[in-house]
Every structure is written in C-alpha cells, then in structure tokens.
Amino acid sequence: MVNLITKIKDLELKNPVMTASGTSGFAEELNDFYDVSLLGAVLLKGITLHNRDGNLYPRMAETASGMLNAVGLQNKGVDYFIKHIYPRIKDYDTNLIANVNGSTVEDYIEVTEKINELPNISAIELNISCPNVKEGGMAFGISCPSAIAVTHEVRKVCSKTLIVKLSPNVTDIAEIAKAVEGQGADSVSLVNTFLGMAIDAEKRIPLLSTVTGGLSGPAIKPIALRMVWQVYNAVKIPVIGMGGIMNATDAIEFMLAGASAVQVGTAIFKDPFIPVQIVDGIENYLERHKLNSVSEIVGALQI
C-alpha cells in the first residue's frame, strides 16, 4: 500500500486530488455519480457576499482542446450557502474547501468571516483571479500591491488553512506568489483561467456575451505547468497545481513540477469520474516506480 496522504500546511488530504472550483458545483452533483469521499478535497463553487446572477448567455464556447467560460460567479451569496447548501453537504467525508470572492477587500473579509465559522469547511481558497467579473476578481490578482492588501486583510480573519488562487494573466506569477506568501498565505493554487476570446466569423459576433472569457482545459496545460514550476521554485509554501489536467499522467507531471496536490477542472465536464481515476492512476504510478509515498514525487523533476 502506498501512502497518498498529502498535507497542505495543517490540512490533511487522503490523497492529492481535488476538484477545481466552478467545475464541481457544491459536491452534491458529483456525489450523484460516486461517493465524493474518494477525493482529497472538493472545491466549492465561488461564493460572494451577495447573490450574483452571473453573465448573460452564451457563457461558453468550445475551443481547440478546451473551452472558454464567462459564467461570472453566479451564486446565491454566502448567507444562502450557509443556510441552505452547507447543511446538506457538511457531512461528506472529504475536505470541503470554500472558494471566496469579492468586488472589494471588505467583501472578501466579510465572506471569509462567515465561512470561517463553519466547522466542516476545511480551508478557504481566496479567488483573486476570476477573469469574468467587472469589479474585483482578477483585478486583485494581477498586481502585487492589491494581492498583498487582500491577502493581508483576509489572513487576519481566517483561522483555517488559507490558499490563494493565482491568475496566470500576469507577467511574473512567481512574484505574486511570493507577495501572498509574505502575507501569511498557507498555500497557493494555480492557475485560474487565461483571458481569451472566440469569434463566429460568419456572423461577425463574439461567441461569449462578455466578448472575452476564461480559457481552460488541455489547451492551457503546458503554460500552467511552467507556472507551477516557476512558483514552486520561488516559494516555500505548498503549491496546488491545475490547468488542463485530464488524466493521472498530467497530474503526476504537475506534481513533478512541484505541486503538492492538484485540482481537476474542465476534465470533469468530459467525464465526472476523471478525478477518481486520477487517484487510482497516481497510486499505480507510485507502485510501478516503487515509491512509498506520494510526497516523494513532489518537485522530483530531474534536470
């Protein structure tokens, strides 16, 4: 038996495979297919202070080896989550991680304070990288001063493991990672989606109502992998890697590049079982390579 237990600061995961925020709902939808306790963690859909209807339809466009989305953080707000959704999901035997969003620093603080009270939420992922909202979101994640400001304030009110989710839409992602590490982030997760766009040439119209949206899926994997490698070499805190992971080999590549754990996003749309298959695939890889623990492959890239 190989040891798949993974630690992100004080947070212990039974395996290093998580689902990515916005691609696994509130865990219930996946639990319709299989027992979510098979997963290391489920990242919940992005939560904001107030109800958000999200962007207009169409919000999705298929692209080469991936897709663009412009969902825009549709959710019913943190109070609704606490009252109606949390009670239904709190007893799943996996780590539930809340993805916290805001238009202002005050929003982020208020949502974090409320989520921090929930005993069965294991950690908070601070999303400073959503490209699909007009105010806040990615704006916080693309400059060091604003990333520092929001992480600094949220850290004060967050007693849970604090993961900061980074935007790839920057010149130097390692610099932002170091900046949030300096403010007490326990971990960084990357990458969120890349800003992109798609056009219907015949109709001469954009395919998304918002014109631009976030690119995800295998199309972004090589860039995401490079960014995980750069961040791993720049910070001491654990790195959570994602971006186009479709199978166990992809996941292992991210871990070799330095990710302590991985998140699986768009692949779930293709097949909701992929995260579970990745857990098995990692176990199989470790056995084949005669390794005892998954931690042995983290950053084990030989150069």
Binding site: G22, T23, S24, G25, E29, L30, D32, F33, K45, G54, Y57, P58, R59, M60, M67, N69, V71, Q74, T266, I268, F269, P272
Partner: peptide
C-alpha cells in the same frame, strides 16, 4: 441551450 457539463456543475447552460 449550449452545455458544457450537462449535470449542473458548470453553470454555462442557464436560462433566465
């Protein structure tokens, strides 16, 4: 409506 997941996790297929 255009769909990405088909089972309620992506919120791409919404109708007002």
């Amino acid at each position: 409506n255009l769909m990405a997941c088909g089972f309620g996790v992506c919120l791409c297929c919404i109708e007002p």
